[in-house]
Amino acid sequence: MSCWDVVADYGLRSLGIGERLLPRDDFTLCKQAVLIGSGMIWNVYFGIVALVSGFFLATALAVGKASPRWLPRKLSEWFIFLFRGSPLFIQFFFAYFLFLSLKSVSPIFAPFSSAWLGALVVLFFNTAAYSGEIFYGALLSVPKGDVEAADAYGFSGWPRFRRIVWPTMLRLAWPAYTNEAIFLFHATTLVFFSGFPAWQQRGDALYYANYFADKTFNPFVAYPILAGYFIVLTLLIIWLFGAINRRLNRHLPQARRSKVRYRPNLLR
């Protein structure tokens, strides 16, 4: 059985396509690499969908937290504190059991108790809270002169936010936001280790890596493969966000452009 057959059998195993049974013996390097790679589909799915949807909520939260009005400010502050102050692991557990109890109230909540939606909701709120805090910090450091110039040109309300404040906020927040994106992808590995069960053994990359490490009792093969996949993913994110960063900074003189610096001391 060549490696291509293994790819055909297990390449989309995490989506339920292909061979149904996971390998029981003869754990070749190829099988481990293919199955763990197949699990990466879930990590990428969770990461991308949560990041894109969380981006909009994060902007709203940042504006809310900076708002002079009491109600939106308090709501955003509490939301951000709730999700930044507690472990993501506990959030997953809590959400899963919450959706389980809601399921008995109304069948609308049935899909929420499976990982593809339930965990996604948690990740969406979580990344929105973390990015919201980043955006809020950037919103406060938008140069006063920019806003005054906008006023002088007759901008106000939504056009001023859309054309002047928001792009500057994004530009200032982008290096920190890049790290947030990286850690969001790392955080997706927690999904199948917390409350959410992997239905029919369709798990993410860490789920399969852990499966192999348990079966072979040898952590020195499966985990390094997983680490390799994540390093590639991290490099891709840095490249993509770096390209966006260059676009956001393109109007500035070379020396004043902010560079994306990888700072890994921000975790969940």
Binding site: I182, H186, A187, T189, L190, F193, L206, A209, N210, A213, F217, P219, F220, Y223, L226, A227, F230, I231, T234, L235, Y262, P264, L267
Partner: peptide, 20 residues
Amino acid sequence: MVRGVPDIVFFLFFVIALDQ
């Protein structure tokens, strides 16, 4: 070491690796 790889991977890895 901790750059680019989720920390949970290290947790799962080190417990078995140290034991062995």
